[in-house]
Computed example of a mutant assay.
Amino acid sequence: MGKQMTEMLKGTLEGIVLALIAGQPAYGYEITARLREQGFTEIAEGTIYALLVRIEQRGLVDVEKVPSEKGPPRKVYSLNPRGREDLDEFWRTWSFLADRIEELHTKGN
Rank of each mutant, 00 (worst) to 15 (best):
F40K: 12
M8W: 05
E42T: 14
V61N: 03
G46H: 04
P25S: 13
L52R: 05
M8F: 03
V53A: 09
A19N: 15
Q57V: 08
G15W: 00
Q57E: 15
A44V: 15
R58E: 15
P67V: 02
I31N: 08
A50E: 08
I16P: 04
G15F: 06
E56W: 02
I21A: 08
R54C: 03
G11H: 04
L13F: 01
P72H: 03
L9G: 06
R58A: 14
M8Y: 01
Y49K: 11
V53D: 13
I43P: 02
L51E: 00
E64Y: 04
Y27M: 13
A50C: 00
E45N: 11
Q57C: 08
A19E: 14
T41L: 13
P67C: 09
G23H: 15
R36K: 15
K10F: 04
G71N: 09
R36I: 03
P72Y: 05
K70R: 14
Q38M: 15
I31W: 06
L35I: 06
G15M: 07
K70L: 13
I16L: 09
T32D: 10
L60T: 08
I21D: 07
T47E: 12
R54V: 08
L20S: 10
T41W: 02
D62M: 04
T6I: 12
L52E: 12
G28T: 09
K70E: 11
V61M: 00
G28Y: 02
G28E: 09
K10S: 11
E56R: 06
I55M: 07
I43R: 01
V53M: 05
I21N: 07
E45R: 14
G59A: 04
Q24C: 13
T47M: 06
G46F: 01
E37H: 12
Q24G: 11
I55Q: 10
Y29S: 13
L9R: 07
G39W: 06
F40R: 08
G46A: 11
L51G: 06
V63S: 11
L13C: 09
G23M: 12
Y27N: 15
A44T: 13
A22W: 00
Q38P: 07
G71Q: 02
Y29N: 14
A44F: 06
I48W: 01
P25A: 13
G23C: 12
E42G: 10
R34L: 11
K65N: 12
L9C: 00
L35V: 10
P25L: 10
S68Q: 04
G71T: 09
G28R: 04
A33N: 15
I55H: 08
A44W: 11
G71A: 09
V63Y: 05
Y29H: 12
Y49I: 03
E42S: 14
T12R: 06
A26D: 10
L18K: 05
T47S: 11
L52M: 03
Y29V: 10
G11C: 05
T47Q: 12
K10I: 01
L60G: 08
E45F: 14
Q24H: 13
G28C: 03
E7Y: 01
G59Y: 03
I48D: 05
I43M: 06
L60K: 06
A50K: 11
A22L: 00
G71Y: 03
F40A: 12
Y27A: 11
R54K: 08
T12S: 07
T6S: 11
L35Y: 06
T32W: 00
Y49V: 09
T47G: 03
L18Q: 04
E42F: 02
